[in-house]
Structures are given as structure tokens and as C-alpha cells.
Amino acid sequence: MKNNRPPRQDSNTDVRAKKHLGQHFLTDENIARKIADTLDYSGYEKTLEIGPGMGVLTKYLLEKDTEVHVIEIDSESVEYLESHYLHLRGRIHEKDFLKHDLGSIFREEQFAVIGNFPYNISTQIVFKVLQMRDQIPEFSGMFQKEVAKRICEKEGSKAYGILSVLVQAFYEAEYLFTVPPTVFNPPPKVDSGVLRLKRKENYSLPCNEKLFFTVVKTSFNQRRKTLRNSLKSLNLPDNLREDTIFGSRPEQLGFQQFIELTQKIEPYAVSNK
């Protein structure tokens, strides 16, 4: 059942953006509506918005057929939301998204994640979503454009990296649109980009997933070197490192090839434990 739209906000009680929290409040209603429309709202009943601020995106989420929860670390924003968004009563969580156990909110339920993410923690947000991928079928939101592009980038590009591989192994990643600095208060110094992640139907990898993360991260830690050199710390036998795949650089491998690489390494990683 759709919620009623909350009353219009009083501009005289605006929350002050705080630099140490990386806050840039979105002021464009059309863009807020477009972001809210990026999710399908199917296959789950609840949606979590990270860092709602004064609720410019929240108001459009409340029009969707989903139970909206918001998580906000800024007490001033929380106070504002509690007084302006009565429909959210009991679903405003004054917590740090990165540190809070989301299981206490959603238990084992499926839920989507959305937001206008602070630039300074946006990649950490993605890593936490990956950790909780069993519960998060959809994810969308606004990042620094460079970061959003990197997440969606394919192999062969200089921008392609750890986040690109790890995200694309479990989710279909799509860059949606660019947002200029002028629609924020205060305006950031760079463009922003909105992306959408949809979890794959079969997102269980045919390899040791913990080792997969290790192989990807270790490979890109020295991205200019071939895998033969960048993976030396894994203490692999010389005969394995002669395999042709080890002559590649990490940005040349798609996520499927990283899965194959992990499968080759796995017997030796297990025996070295």
C-alpha cells in the first residue's frame, strides 16, 4: 500500500550541511524523483535510504510500494525528519551505516538500498552492500561521477579496478545519468553520477568467494605488474605461475576470468593453510 505524501518542508528550518560528514544536499526535485524511480521495488518489501538529510529523495520513496527506512548519522537531520516526516515514525535510525548491524533492522529479510551518498564513504558503502549481498537484490544511488563510472567500467580500461570486478561478479551494474554540481547545496567541485546494481539470479560463485576477494584485491594492489608478479605473496608454485593467465595484467581480466584464476589457485591455497 502506498503511503500518503508528507507535508512540504519548511525552508526556514533547513539543516546546515556539515563538511566533516561530506554532506551535499540535493535541491532538485526532478532529479530526486528520477533517483527514486531507479529501483523496481519488486521481490522485496523494504527499502533503506542512506543519509536522507532533509528528505528530498525520501518524499518520493514514500510514494512507492515499499516500507521505507532511513539511516542517518547527523542528529540535526534526524530531528528534522522526525518533525517533517511523520510517516517515518519508528523507521528513522540514528546510526552510522558502516558500523551498524543492519540485521537488527531487517533480520533476514530482503531489502533495497538507495541514497545520495557522501563522497568520502561511498566506496565503503558498496563494500558493505557486497558483504550483505544475500539480502540486497537492488542498490542505486548517487556517487562522485568518477567512482560511479569506475564501478560500472569493463576490463581493458584504466578506470577498471577492484570495485568493478567485485561488484560485477554479483550484480549487473549500469551507469544511468550524470548530475551537475549546481543542483546541490553546497555544490561539490565535481559532477555526480547515478548508478543501479541488480543482483544476478545466480550470484553464487563457483569458487571460494573469500579467496576470490583476496585474489582480486592482491592483483590490483600492483596493477602495473603481471599477475605472475603481483600474486607472488600467495606463494604459488612455479609450475602454476607459468599458466598463460599469469602473464596478464589485472585490468585485462573480466570478472569471469578472475573466477577462473581463483579456481586455478584454490587447490594450492587450501594446501598452504
Score class of each variant (00 low, 15 high):
I71R: 02
K217S: 04
T58A: 05
L227E: 11
F25G: 04
P180E: 08
R107M: 12
L61T: 01
F25S: 04
N185I: 00
I121V: 14
V190I: 03
L166G: 09
Y119V: 05
S42L: 11
M132L: 15
R199K: 12
K273C: 09
V165D: 14
G161H: 13
L81N: 11
D40G: 04
V194C: 05
V68L: 09
N202E: 14
V167H: 01
K198M: 11
Q124Y: 08
T226I: 02
E242P: 02
K34Y: 08
I121K: 04
E109Q: 15
K59P: 00
G161V: 00
S233W: 03
V190Q: 02
K95G: 00
T47H: 01
Y60N: 15
V194Y: 09
V129Q: 10
R199Q: 05
E266N: 08
T27F: 01
F255N: 13
N229A: 08
D37S: 12
V165A: 11
C207E: 12
S248G: 02
F117H: 11
V190F: 00
G43Y: 07
Y171N: 09
V194T: 03
V167M: 08
V194S: 06
R224T: 01
D10A: 13
K154M: 13
N12R: 15
R199P: 00
F212V: 02
A269C: 04
D28S: 07
R91Y: 09
T13H: 15
E260A: 12
D243M: 00
Y175S: 08
D65Y: 02
Y171I: 02
K46D: 11
M132Q: 15
Q252A: 14
F106W: 14
N235T: 06
